[in-house]
Amino acid sequence: MKVGELASAFGLEVLTGSVNLDREIQAGYTSDLLSDVIANIEENAVWITIQRHINILGVAKLKDIAAILIPRNLQLDQEVIDKACTESIAILRGGLSAFELSGLLYDALKRG
């Protein structure tokens, strides 16, 4: 499943325009502890987190993350969105909780 397909399937908002919409998603990970993400997230994963400061982009870049997914329609600074575009990192946002989004993503990835 591609990032763009995930967004349309679950009605997610795409905050970063066309960035990485064609990227294939192979895994998912839900965590707000950066050390945990750095150590355990797989490549090409969607990272579900409520962290929204600029440092999540460093993590996303280092771990080659397919997209960051922000739950509960939480607000992001424009600075972070702009930087994500420059760094080619997709940021998606949904109205559901991290728990619910994780469940949807899990199902979608299992179905392939």
């Binding site: 502890l33 945990d36 962290q51 400061h53 440092n55 999540i56």
Partner: peptide, 12 residues
């Protein structure tokens, strides 16, 4: 609050 400080850095 920024997601650092989990005390996992040195062990990792």
């Amino acid at each position: 609050e920024m997601g650092f400080g989990a005390g996992m850095g040195l062990p990792n």
